[in-house]
Design a protein around this nucleic acid. Structure first.
Length: 300
DNA sequence: GTCCAGGTCTTCC
DNA sequence: GGAAGACATGGA
């Protein structure tokens, strides 16, 4: 019989809902008792609590540092936000609306595989594909008595051993070939994900982009969400649309010019700024507002 | 039925 | 080196 264990992480400025629903991670589910997920092979439920976060696991946990690291509770958010350009009214508006949004520190393989599956997919679809993968190929993890079964994200060796048809059965389409090849290279040691975090950002980025199906955007997601490179700045359709509308209204804009602007403008915590812009734009400004920029038009 | 999604790759000029 | 089309799928 499982004996649940609890822990309180004292932390200020932490908005659990914004963090877990901001498109950086895809497996957390809202439940009556909090947010349910699987981290490091452990089933976890998280709740917003007075002065911090409350965590529950299905089994006894002696050392909770793995979860604190994942949640990045030691990060002083006020210091991060203070590094944003102070004269940027648009960014400050996003900060006011989403204060407490955090960047997680995810497992590199799960993050890489998830974002390989993300290309030209809506977040709800990405979640469906990943849940199918976990349900079919993930190892079961301990859950509380009477709770529905839960599974970990399948490791690279498991996915590398599947046929492309088996992967496609999870409705991932053309991404199956990319996921399988990435899994093979990781499982066979051609790509050492543990070593990437110790490399310079540029080298790590090149190594990720050497994978089929991984371009600059997906590489930047992994650099930011799994390795914590603070200047990594994923530019997807939403961020591109937001940047174009806000900083270059009614102008033609090349990708090169946009990248130069990003490097010069957002500073040492550019990755955090990106996440605030993405979440704010997607959750509020994007809703019901006709985008001013669509693919293939206006120079991008 | 049409549009579009946390893109990337290939082809062609 | 930049533009255009292909690639799968399903919610809105």
């Amino acid at each position: 019989m499982n004996v649940p264990s609890f822990f309180h992480f004292p932390v200020l400025d932490y908005d659990l809902e914004a963090t877990l629903s901001s498109g950086q991670v895809f497996r957390w589910q809202r439940a009556p008792a909090g947010w349910e997920g699987v981290v490091n092979g452990r089933w976890v439920i998280l709740q917003q609590a007075a002065g911090g976060l409350r965590a529950t696991c299905a089994e006894p946990v002696e050392d909770w540092r793995w979860l604190g690291h994942y949640l990045q509770v030691e990060v002083n958010l006020a210091e991060v936000l203070a590094a944003f350009p102070a004269d940027d009214a648009h960014l400050q508006e996003a900060v006011r609306a989403c204060r407490g949004l955090r960047l997680l520190r995810q497992d590199p393989w799960e993050c890489l595989a998830s974002f390989i599956l993300s290309s030209t997919k809506q977040i709800v679809h990405i979640r469906q594909i990943i849940e199918c993968l976990c349900a079919r190929y993930g190892w079961p993890v301990a859950v509380p008595e009477g709770h529905a079964p839960a599974r970990a994200f399948p490791d690279a060796a498991t996915l590398a051993g599947l046929t492309e048809a088996a992967l496609r059965a999870c409705r991932m389409g053309f991404r199956a070939r990319y996921l399988r090849e990435a899994a093979r290279r990781v499982a066979e040691g051609e790509l050492d994900l543990a070593a990437l975090g110790k490399q310079e950002e540029r080298m790590a980025r090149e190594a990720l982009m050497a994978l089929p199906g991984v371009g600059p955007k997906i590489a930047d997601c992994v650099l930011l969400f799994a390795y914590g490179f603070p200047r990594a700045f994923p530019v997807d359709v939403w961020v591109r649309r937001a940047l174009h509308t806000v900083y270059f209204p009614r102008q033609r804009l090349t990708l090169r010019r946009l990248e130069a602007f990003i490097r010069a403008h957002f500073g040492p915590q550019a990755g955090y700024a990106q996440q605030y812009l993405f979440h704010y734009w997607r959750s509020r400004r994007g809703r019901g507002q006709k985008p001013s920029l669509t693919r293939g038009k206006a120079g991008l």
